[in-house]
Structure formats: C-alpha cells, structure tokens
Amino acid sequence: MAKQVISGSGTEGLPLSEAVRAGDFVFVSGMVGFGPDGRIVEGGIAAETDRIMADVADILKRAGASLADIVKVNICLTDAADFAAFNEAYARYFRKDPPARVSLAASLTIKARVEMDFIAYTGK
C-alpha cells in the first residue's frame, strides 16, 4: 500500500506531515488552534476548537476526505475544567454519528488549550 503525504504551511518546520493517507485511511497529526498569524487564536477553548476543525477540514479536503469521514479523534485539553465548553464546541461538528474518541487532560508543548489528532476512513 502506497502512502501519500499531505503537507502545507502548518508544520512550521517540524519533522512531521500535516497528514498521511494510507489506503482508505487519513491520519492527521496533532492540531492546535493556530491562526493565520501563527499564534493561537484568542477566545478560549471554543475558538481554538473551531480553528482546529476548520484546519482539519481543509487538510482532509486536500486528502480527498471530509469531516464526515472522521472515525477517531484523540483530544488533549490542558485544563479539565474546559471539558464542558470544549464538548459544546466539538458537538457542532459531529451532530450525527460522532467518531470514537479519547479525551485527556495534560500539558502541551505550546501555549494552547487543546490539541487534537484525527483518523478518517474514506472506504465504503
């Protein structure tokens, strides 16, 4: 099975790809809410979540997939107190048949409130 690397400006010189397509699966690297200026968007957990979802939609589109194809999400919050507000923002993107997921609270290597990585499946 050949793999296809999907890269853009979002890797910021780090040794990673934004996403890798392997057969019918697309694996999207951990995403944080960077705005166009390269800084974490202001507005708290909901704004960061919205930015991540917009960015992952773009990455998936370049990989021939969409948000509807997401089957698994790993979520890392820096503050467990953000869990309810995060869920409210996240739920707007997965109103029906949400993907499987893991949520945990831990520190991140940058000043963001949330990081998420995604797995999408495009097979039938």
Rank of each mutant, 00 (worst) to 15 (best):
G38E: 12
I40T: 07
G13W: 03
S29T: 10
E18K: 09
D50I: 01
P36A: 14
G38K: 13
F25W: 14
K72G: 00
T49V: 03
A63L: 00
F34K: 15
L77G: 09
L14A: 13
K61E: 13
G38P: 13
N74S: 14
A68D: 13
R51E: 13
A22P: 01
D24H: 13
A54G: 06
L77W: 10
G35Y: 11
I45P: 03
M53C: 00
R39L: 14
S17W: 09
I52H: 03
F25V: 09
I59F: 05
R39I: 09
E48K: 06
D55T: 15
D79K: 12
V20W: 10
I40F: 09
A65P: 01
K61R: 13
D24W: 06
L67Q: 05
P15K: 11
F34I: 10
G13L: 03
I70M: 07
I45F: 01
I70G: 11
F27D: 07
K61N: 08
E48Q: 15
G43V: 07
A22N: 11
R21S: 02
S66N: 00
V32C: 14
V41M: 03
R51W: 02
V26I: 15
K72P: 00
D24Y: 04
D69K: 10
G35L: 09
G43C: 08
V71P: 00
E48D: 08
A47H: 09
A57I: 01
M31V: 14
A65I: 05
S66R: 12
V26A: 05
V56F: 04
P15W: 10
A22I: 12
K72N: 13
I70R: 08
K61W: 09
C76N: 07
F27Q: 10
A47Q: 05
A68F: 01
I45V: 11
S29I: 01
G13M: 12
A63V: 08
S29H: 07
G30Q: 08
G13T: 12
V71C: 02
F25D: 15
D58T: 14
G33Q: 07
V26C: 04
V71Q: 07
I45M: 00
C76A: 12
T49L: 08
M31Q: 15
F25K: 13
K61A: 14
R21M: 02
D55K: 15
D79F: 04
F34H: 15
F25H: 14
G38Y: 09
M31R: 15
A65G: 06
A22E: 14
V71L: 00
L60D: 06
V71G: 05
L16G: 06
T49Y: 01
S66E: 12
I45H: 05
V28Y: 06
